[in-house]
């Protein structure tokens, strides 16, 4: 039974990877692949946001600013380097991540002097400052007129596929980084900061450096995804690429799936984004999907304050503890047995 429990997640991961890689073959409809592009985008965004917000407990509502920085970096890079349509612009995605990370360094250095609600407000303020800067630095960004990117000359049926794979690679990279951080001593330090920052300092965790590193890594990953998004939609408008709703969506997905867990943000994105796109396509003009967002937020806060992954895990462990499959329900856990709520989610 132990071997089965050990290998089951690996087999599931392998199956998910195979389906994800073969998706454009299994479902070649461009509309479906378009949904998959945005879903993968949010898998990456929510997982990247979770490295900062979930692991350290510092809730940033301004990550849309980094998404926009990545988009502008790619747009400006393509324009100034004279890169034509095709696969060339994808080569600038790492540059988008690097420059976004460099931008995030001084922003994080200042913002992380604050904690709790003040940090949240500072990140919102920074995001709007970046949006205003993008609107007003007309010579650089094109102002409210935005930037146009070259349109790839791929066929309509194939057009979305390279973007899907680009988003899939970035989402996988983000999950891999998040996984590595979660099991490293650095990640343990981040989780300690989330639980009790002063206590973490007392046992030698350089909290300021750790938080800043998490902030920069998180921002750089978001910036890379923003770069691919810019090329996908072929335009960069300040209101679209630095959109508070993008930032809120990342947070909502991480909360829904399970804050501070590895799989939670992935699950949250897989559930919310296709539903949101469906509502947007069917009722887009009325922005009914915003009501859907509010509803999901309320459900999460009222029924699943810890998110789906930790809640389901608690239920599963409680079920195993009470007797497991094929056995009569046993007595409730004794005092020495970890209560269902006392188990760490992956």
């Amino acid at each position: 039974m132990n071997a089965a429990r050990r290998f089951a997640p690996r087999v599931a991961l392998l199956l998910v990877a195979i389906v994800a890689i073969l998706l454009p073959v299994l479902e070649p409809n461009p509309a479906s692949i378009n949904v998959a592009v945005f879903t993968m985008m949010y898998v990456g965004l929510a997982s990247a946001w979770n490295i900062m917000g979930g692991y350290t407990g510092y809730i940033s509502l301004g990550h849309a600013g980094f998404f926009g920085l990545g988009a502008y970096t790619l747009g400006l890079g393509v324009a100034h380097l004279g890169i034509g349509p095709g696969y060339g612009p994808f080569a600038l995605v790492p540059l988008a991540g690097l420059l976004t990370g460099l931008f995030a360094l001084p922003i994080g250095w200042i913002a992380l002097r604050t904690r709790a609600a003040t940090f949240v407000i500072v990140t919102i303020a920074v995001m709007f400052m970046l949006q205003l800067a993008a609107m007003n630095l007309i010579g650089l960004t094109g102002g409210t007129g935005g930037l146009s990117l070259p349109v790839p000359r791929w066929s309509g049926d194939f057009y979305n596929t390279p973007f899907y794979y680009a988003m899939l690679i970035l989402a996988s990279l983000t999950i891999a980084v998040s996984w590595w951080i979660r099991r490293s001593k650095f990640g343990l330090g981040l989780l300690a900061i989330r639980d009790d920052e002063d206590k973490a300092m007392a046992v030698g965790v350089p909290t300021r450096q750790f938080k800043l590193a998490a902030f920069v890594i998180s921002a750089a990953l978001v910036g890379m995804i923003g770069g691919v998004y810019a090329y996908y939609v072929t335009y960069v408008y300040p209101e679209f690429v630095i959109d508070p709703l993008t930032g809120i969506s990342m947070v909502l997905m991480a909360f829904l799936g399970g804050l501070g867990t590895l799989t939670g943000p992935v699950l949250g994105a897989l559930l919310v984004e296709p539903a949101q796109l469906s509502l947007a396509y069917n009722f887009g003009a009325s922005r009914l999907y915003l009501v859907f967002y509010s509803g999901v937020f309320l459900v999460v806060i009222l029924l699943l304050p810890r998110g789906i992954v930790p809640s389901v895990r608690d239920l599963t462990i409680g079920w195993w503890t009470r007797g497991g499959p094929g056995r009569a329900a046993g007595p409730s856990p004794g005092p020495s047995t970890p209560a269902p709520g006392n188990v760490v989610a992956p």
Binding site: G189, D195, V344
Partner: peptide, 15 residues
């Protein structure tokens, strides 16, 4: 202590 870390993880936090 760190309430959402296991006792073992609590032991591994010190740097």
């Amino acid at each position: 202590i760190f309430p959402r870390l296991t006792a073992l993880e609590n032991m591994l936090v010190p740097v």
